[in-house]
Amino acid sequence: MKIKKDEVTHVAHLARLEFTEAEAEKFTSQLNNILLYMEMLNRVDTTGVPPMTHAVAQQNAFREDNVTPSLGRDLTLANAPDARGDFFRVPKVIE
């Protein structure tokens, strides 16, 4: 086993997801199969190979620090599931 059910539950918490018992069982078995398949990468000698992080090598993309129009308050709030006044409303954070 590459990954056990309690680890799946921990990763779910990190990913802000929750599962029923049955779902967690199913995910554990599916993730195990996928992770076992990935073991083949250990056969590749990567000593001294720098990790590739970009498909096309690019330097930092700088731009002039000019002020340009932004969305504005109304458009920003337009898709909010719950907005009041100028704010996004969420459940109470501090007891």
């Binding site: 990935m38 990468l41 250990n42 590749v44 990567t46 190979v49 720098p50 990790p51 590739m52 992080t53």
Partner: peptide
């Protein structure tokens, strides 16, 4: 996983 995969990715390229 991630670092290893990114290294093999460099070899694929």
């Amino acid at each position: 996983y991630y670092k290893k995969a990114s290294q093999v990715r460099a070899l694929i390229k």
